[in-house]
Amino acid sequence: MSETRSIAVKFENVSRVFGATRAADNLAFEVYDGEFFSMLGPSGSGKTTCLRLIAGFEQPDIGHILVHGKNVEGVPPYERDVNTVFQDYALFPHMTVAGNVEYGLMIRKVPQQERRRRAGEALEMVKLSGMGERKPSQLSGGQRQRVALARALVNRPAVLLLDEPLGALDLKLREAMQVELKSLQRQVGITFIYVTHDQTEALSMSDRIAVFNHGRIEQIGTPAEIYEHPATAFVAGFVGVSNVVSGALAQRLTSSSQAFSIRPEKISLFDLGTPVPADMLGIEGQIESATYLGANTRFVVTVEGKQIAVIKQNASNVGTPDTILGKSVLVAWNLTSMQKLS
């Protein structure tokens, strides 16, 4: 990332310990202004703790957090220029939708007229115009999610924190919201810090992703960097499907015992006896299963006792014949598709 970009949030060797677990373990990273930054990881990996540290609901045990260069140590949540979209939306059930959206402005004593106008704009932005008088209980899950978003955005925070905001929605709605969230972020230009355990979500929306595991960051990079060049076996396995090859098989293929990963869609299957192209690496394997998935077919090929997943697009409209099972094939991939793991 360029040096000229200003930093919205900076973690300086931050640790947060709960009993025996290190929810955040010596974290140091930066989030740039106007960036869509995702924190991706399995549950319990420390990503939500990071979000709560930025929001001020948790305080670091060690280290400092800077928001726009200012150390926020000891600053309570209500004095921080950040807003959160909660996982369960946390809408106030006794207030109307408009009441919820205006809440932050009311607390900051913004005059009623301006409050109305800005809340109206925020609701329009999330496509909920005319819903202001309803109660949250009268809305669908997707609508509540939008209200939570409007309630946070109306305050024009420096940083917007989103804690798995799409987790409770069904797949179709989630995909639609991913597109909307991303375009909304471009439109308002606010820094989004987005927590998710869903790698597709992180890949599709983010400018950069931090992959969390056991309170540490395994890798930070653009979606393409994370996907194409996973730094560790954990990243390779967690972001997308990956074949991690190590030990004897790695030794045979690359004359080095260093583990490497190869994505299923980057592997080709050839008839046995086909010469291996110069820039490719090939080895014999047996097709163990073939699963038809509509757009593509997923093969499992056994290579020297190790199962390798291979994905082929269904370019022709002829299905895979059953006779293919057990067949010996040449499994090959481009040398540049391999990713050495540390």
Binding site: A55, Y78, N83, T84, F86, A90, Y103, I107, A152
Partner: peptide, 13 residues
């Protein structure tokens, strides 16, 4: 819910 109290603080209350 605790999250409502946190949400209120988060919104500056």
């Amino acid at each position: 819910p605790k999250s409502l109290i946190e949400a209120s603080a988060d919104l500056g209350s």
